[in-house]
C-alpha cells in the first residue's frame, strides 16, 4: 500500500476511535462517572505499567491468529466467521497429537502438535470453502454453524472419549504433559503464543503481498469474473485461503493448549474467534494491521478488570466499547479512497 493509503487508513481509524471515545464517554457519564478518569484508568490498565503491557499482549496473542481466520479469506472475497470453531478443532487435534507423541523430544513434539492444530483448523474452514465453491453454500452461514458443531463435538469428546478422568472437578481432555508445554517467553509473563501470533501475521503479509499466490487472491477478491476470465484456479484459491485462515485459528487453539491449559476443555470456547472477526475488520483485513488491532483490543479487555474494580463498570463495558468501535470503523469504510486520488485500498 502506498504511503498515502496508510495515512488515509490511519486518519480514518483515528476518527472512528475518537467518535467511539465520545459515544462511550457519554454512556459512562450517564452512570455518573468522569469519562476522563475512566479513560485514564483504561490507559493504565492496558499500557500503563509493564504488567499491564504483559496483560495486554497475553490477551492480544490469540486475537492475532483468529483475526487472520477472517482476514485471509476476506482477501479472496469470502466472509468467514468460523474462527471460534477452528480454534476448538485445532485445540483438540493438538491434544491428540501431544498424547500420540508422548516420549518424543519436546521441541519436535511441540512443533508437530502446533502443526496438527493448524492442519485441523485449516481443514475445518477449508471444508466450508469447498462447500462454497462446489455446492454454493454461503460460507458465512456455514462457518457460523460449524462453530456450534465444533463446540458440541468438543463437549462430547471431553465428556468421555478423550476425557482425563483424573481431573475430578472439570470435564477436560487428556493432558499433553508438562514436558510439551511452551510456557512463558523468558523474562516475561507473556506466553509464547504472542511470538507465534506475530510471526503468523508477518508470514501471511509476505504471502499475500510478495507472491503470485497473493496477487491471484487479490484479483479473485476484487472480481470473481475477472479471475475466471484470466484463468485463475478459483476453487483452489478459495480452498487455500480458507485453509490458511482456518490454520491460523487452529494454531490459536494449539497455543491455548500448549501454552496455557495443557489440555482441551470448554475453556477453549471463550469468544476469541468472535473477537477475531472484529479485529480483522478493524484491520481492514490487513495482516500487519491485525497485529496492531489485536494489541488495541487486548488492551481494552486487559483494562476491563480495572474498570470493574475501580468504577464498578460492568464487565460488558468492554464489549460495548468494542461494538461502538466496530460500527464506527465500518462507517468510515465509505470514506476510503475519497480522501485521496487513485486506486481504492
Amino acid at each position: 500500500m502506498a504511503l498515502r493509503a496508510w495515512a488515509e487508513t490511519a486518519a480514518l481509524t483515528s476518527a472512528a476511535l475518537l467518535v467511539t471515545l465520545v459515544v462511550f464517554g457519554g454512556l459512562v457519564a450517564a452512570r455518573g462517572l468522569d469519562p476522563v478518569a475512566v479513560y485514564a484508568t483504561l490507559y493504565v490498565g492496558a499500557f500503563g505499567t509493564w504488567f499491564s503491557l504483559e496483560d495486554t499482549l497475553t490477551q492480544a496473542a490469540p486475537l492475532m491468529l483468529t483475526a487472520l481466520a477472517t482476514a485471509i479469506p476476506a482477501r479472496a472475497g469470502l466472509l468467514v466467521i468460523g474462527g471460534e470453531g477452528a480454534l476448538v478443532v485445532g485445540g483438540v487435534a493438538t491434544v491428540l497429537a501431544g498424547v500420540l507423541l508422548a516420549g518424543a523430544p519436546p521441541a519436535v513434539a511441540i512443533g508437530l502438535m502446533c502443526g496438527a492444530g493448524a492442519l485441523a483448523g485449516g481443514l475445518w474452514i477449508a471444508a466450508a470453502g469447498a462447500l462454497r465453491h462446489w455446492r454454493g453454500v454461503n460460507e458465512t452461514i456455514s462457518t457460523l454453524l460449524l462453530n456450534y458443531i465444533a463446540v458440541a463435538v468438543l463437549n462430547w469428546l471431553v465428556s468421555s472419549p478423550i476425557r482425563d478422568f483424573d481431573q475430578v472437578l472439570k470435564a477436560a481432555s487428556w493432558p499433553v504433559g508438562e514436558a510439551f508445554m511452551l510456557g512463558d517467553i523468558p523474562g516475561t509473563g507473556i506466553h509464547w503464543g504472542l511470538a507465534f501470533g506475530v510471526a503468523a501475521c508477518l508470514v501471511a503479509w509476505g504471502l499475500l503481498r510478495a507472491t503470485t499466490f497473493g496477487f491471484a487472491v487479490d484479483i479473485l477478491g476484487g472480481n470473481l469474473r475477472a479471475a475466471q476470465m484470466v484463468g485463475l484456479p478459483v476453487g483452489r484459491l478459495v480452498l487455500a485461503t480458507c485453509f490458511l485462515g482456518g490454520a491460523a485459528a487452529g494454531l490459536a487453539g494449539a497455543l491455548e493448549v500448549a501454552a496455557v491449559h495443557g489440555f482441551a476443555s470448554a475453556s477453549l470456547v471463550v469468544g476469541y474467534g468472535y473477537a477475531g472477526i472484529l479485529a480483522a475488520f478493524l484491520a481492514r483485513q490487513h495482516p500487519l494491521g491485525c497485529i496492531a488491532v489485536a494489541v488495541l483490543l487486548g488492551g481494552i479487555s486487559a483494562s476491563g478488570g480495572l474498570l470493574q474494580r475501580r468504577f464498578g463498570l460492568p464487565d460488558a463495558a468492554t464489549l460495548v466499547l468494542q461494538g461502538i468501535l466496530f460500527v464506527a470503523v465500518l462507517a468510515t469504510h465509505t470514506l476510503h479512497g475519497r480522501l485521496r486520488a487513485g486506486r481504492a485500498a
Binding site: L27, L79, F281, L319
Partner: peptide
C-alpha cells in the same frame, strides 16, 4: 451489510449485558 451485522451482534449483546 454482513460486517455491520456482526458489529451490531457485538454491540447489541454488549449493551444488553452492560
Amino acid at each position: 451489510d454482513i460486517a455491520v451485522g456482526i458489529a451490531l451482534f457485538l454491540l447489541g449483546t454488549g449493551l444488553a449485558f452492560y
